[in-house]
Amino acid sequence: MAKHRSKARNKQRSSTRRTQLVGLTAALAATAGTIGFTASMGGTSTASTGLSPSQADALTAARVDRRDVGSRDTSRIDLSLAEAKAYQERAARSTLTARRALALSAAKAKSARIAAAKAKALAEAKAEAKAAELAKAAAAAKARAAAPRIVLPTTGYHLTARFNQAGGRWAHNHTGLDFAAAFGTPVRAVMAGEVIQADFEGAYGRQVKIRHADGTVTSYSHMSEFDVSVGDSVSAGTAVGAIGMTGNTTGPHVHFEVLPDGQNPVNPEPWLRAHGVTP
């Protein structure tokens, strides 16, 4: 009898251990995702698994933990994706900003180069204009230096009357020198000065008067034409008219007078020689 009871207890303990082992195996398998269990709205069904209520609760808790772990993993993945997207957007904005900065810098550099080129061209143009102006002034100075200070009033001439010469052709003694030459021969200013008269003057015909730097006035009469006007500046040798026969004359010539005070004529011959020419 005692032996029978010992066998019954051993059998009961073996059954209990098998039940616990089956429950532990099922829980482990559920945790690893290899066994599916069905949960009802009000609790966990144990009819098809042979689990005790405590084992079913443990299994449910494991499933909840597993779901929470999966949810956290998904959240972490979503967060990582969002962070990666945000990083890409920041990188894109940074790249765009850098490109804009480079484009702006290039545009500024180009504008600076254009401005520098324009400034250089303007400076060169000014320098060239200044050089041309200086060259022109130098050429004019050279021409003035090379130009004669005094010339005779015409060319190809012969003297037909001298200063203070008496004769029936004049109301008084002759007041100048008569340079006879072919009709139309140019009549020239003997020195540089300003034209103060260019008009028809009675017996003198077409007459030009020039005032020179020292106040002396020279007069040219009987010309056929005028080549200057009042106010013109002339140099020695500038054409002021042409040999003619206007006024009181018997042949083509220019009547030349020298008036130191602008009023009273003097003998032109010594005056011309004193200035370097001999008629």
Rank of each mutant, 00 (worst) to 15 (best):
V217E: 02
A121S: 14
Y204P: 00
A242W: 00
T175I: 04
R18D: 12
I196D: 02
A137G: 05
D78T: 09
A171Q: 04
E201I: 03
I243P: 03
H212Y: 07
K136A: 14
T155I: 05
P279F: 03
P265E: 11
A82N: 01
W271A: 07
K108N: 12
L79D: 13
T34V: 13
P279Y: 06
R113Q: 13
I243T: 11
G193E: 04
V187G: 06
M41V: 15
G33W: 00
P186L: 02
S54Q: 15
Q55M: 11
E89M: 02
R211V: 15
S229F: 04
P148K: 13
L272F: 05
D261F: 02
A166N: 10
R113E: 11
N10M: 06
R149E: 14
P279D: 11
R211W: 03
G70N: 12
A161T: 14
A139S: 10
G176Y: 00
M1A: 13
G241R: 02
P148Y: 01
P53N: 09
N164S: 14
P148A: 15
Q207Y: 00
R113M: 07
W170Q: 10
T250H: 12
A127Y: 00
T16V: 08
K7S: 10
F183H: 13
E124P: 01
S6W: 04
A198S: 14
A26C: 04
Q263I: 06
A84V: 02
L24M: 09
G251E: 14
K118I: 12
D68I: 11
T38I: 05
L51P: 07
D57Y: 06
R17Q: 09
A86N: 15
D78L: 02
R100F: 02
A47R: 08
S219R: 14
S71L: 08
R162Q: 13
T175Q: 15
A84E: 04
L24C: 03
R149I: 08
A98C: 03
F37Q: 07
P153T: 09
G33M: 04
R211A: 10
R9A: 08
T155N: 13
A47T: 12
A137N: 06
T216P: 14
F37M: 10
A39Y: 02
N248E: 12
R100P: 00
V228G: 05
K7Q: 09
T38P: 01
S14C: 01
A189S: 15
V230G: 08
V208Q: 09
K7F: 08
V64W: 10
H172S: 13
D261E: 12
V266M: 11
E194N: 09
W271Y: 14
K7Y: 05
R9L: 07
R90E: 13
V190C: 07
D65Y: 11
Q20S: 03
T19L: 05
R149K: 14
A39R: 12
L134W: 02
G231Y: 07
S75Y: 00
A125I: 01
E194C: 04
E133T: 08
A86C: 01
A107E: 07
R5G: 06
A236V: 00
A116E: 13
A91V: 08
K209W: 08
A27H: 10
A137F: 04
A91P: 05
V69R: 11
G70V: 10
A166R: 06
N248S: 15
R149C: 00
A236I: 06
T155V: 11
T155F: 08
N248I: 00
M1K: 07
I114N: 12
E133W: 01
R99K: 01
S52M: 06
